[in-house]
């Protein structure tokens, strides 16, 4: 069944898009991420223009992270104070990202920028995750605990001023890295159409030593608010949010996420991280391939303005 998308200006098969929403939702529920880094490329692949894809996926991620956040809220597994501070920075990051998005689009370099950010970010993060989780799996094989607890380990980040105590997470850290992380996630999210959950979770664990109990819930709150504000900002500045596309995606997404979460809870943490690492790395490679291999047609057309 075909349905015409009013902003993307093209008809799509409603079941195909619903299926994409389900599949990405399943993965996002399984790993506790938004899944934007998979959904945006998929939409571009079926012919939606990159700009519309990035702008519309934001609301899809907002929906699935809201479902997740409610679940974690009920379990008291999120740190509101930490989330709020990350948010303050995240919104500034998102605004900067939306501004850069608009500027690059005018300069014909948006596609390149999106491609390059995907390649660098995904291959690096994916590679690190694979490395870390393979080591964890090896340790588990040798009968040692999969994760080494280093309660007293402090990095230079802990020496920075403006220290704040986050009670629920039981950490006492400088506000500077918290703001930097929030800004980065908001910025990257707006440009790449991703929630940044797969970036935020490792950052919070490795840089701020946030315990696993609160990290995913907190990340979901942050993803929710940055993506919700990105939706509004993209709608105001670029008029490119396709509400019909977003609705089909989010319906598939939230249903898929529920089933994914059940699968995820049955898997061991290090195997889950390895799988996610491989997935992230593969998507990164796919983008690298596209940038390096000669395109079928060297020419492309971009719409500038109508009458």
């Amino acid at each position: 069944m075909q349905i015409y998308l009013p902003i993307a200006d093209m008809p799509v098969n409603i079941f195909l898009v619903l299926g994409m929403g389900l599949a990405v939702g399943y993965i996002s529920g399984m790993f506790g991420i938004g899944g934007g880094f998979l959904m945006t490329p998929l939409l571009i692949f079926i012919g939606v223009s990159p700009a519309v894809a990035v702008a519309s996926v934001a609301s899809h991620i907002a929906a699935s992270s809201f479902t997740g956040a409610i679940t974690y809220w009920n379990r008291r597994a999120l740190d509101i104070a930490l989330a709020l501070m990350l948010l303050g920075a995240g919104i500034i990051g998102t605004a900067t990202g939306v501004w850069l998005f608009t500027t690059l689009r005018a300069l014909d370099q948006l596609d390149l920028m999106i491609g390059l950010s995907y390649v660098t970010l995904l291959t690096i993060v994916g590679g690190l995750m694979i490395y870390e989780s393979v080591r964890a799996v090896m340790r588990a094989r040798q009968g040692r605990p999969a994760t080494i607890r280093r309660p007293g380990s402090h990095t230079w980040l802990h020496g920075l001023p403006f220290k704040v105590r986050f009670k629920r997470s039981k950490i006492y850290v400088s506000a500077i890295p918290v703001w930097a992380i929030g800004f980065t996630i908001g910025f990257v999210g707006a440009i790449m159409g991703i929630g940044g959950g797969f970036l935020l979770v490792p950052m919070l664990i490795y840089f701020l030593r946030v315990p696993t109990a609160t990290v995913i819930g907190t990340s979901m709150v942050l993803t929710l608010v940055t993506m919700a504000s990105a939706t509004v900002m993209h709608a105001v500045t670029n008029h490119l949010v396709d509400a019909v596309l977003a609705l089909i995606l989010m319906v598939g997404g939230v249903v898929g996420a529920q089933f994914g979460a059940r699968t995820g809870q049955r898997m061991r943490g290090e195997w889950l991280r390895l799988l996610l690492g491989l997935l992230v790395f593969a998507v990164g490679l796919r983008f690298a391939f596209e940038l390096v291999v000669q395109p079928d047609d060297l020419y492309s057309i971009r719409y500038v303005r109508g009458e």
Partner: peptide, 29 residues
């Protein structure tokens, strides 16, 4: 209706889309 709203009332349109996302998420949970 959707195309006009997106073009003429960007802020309201974005807000409604965002609320739609929250509602979908809430219903699912």
């Amino acid at each position: 209706y959707v195309a006009d709203a997106a073009r003429d009332h960007g802020f309201l349109y974005g807000l409604v889309t965002m609320l739609m996302a929250l509602l979908t998420g809430w219903i699912a949970s």
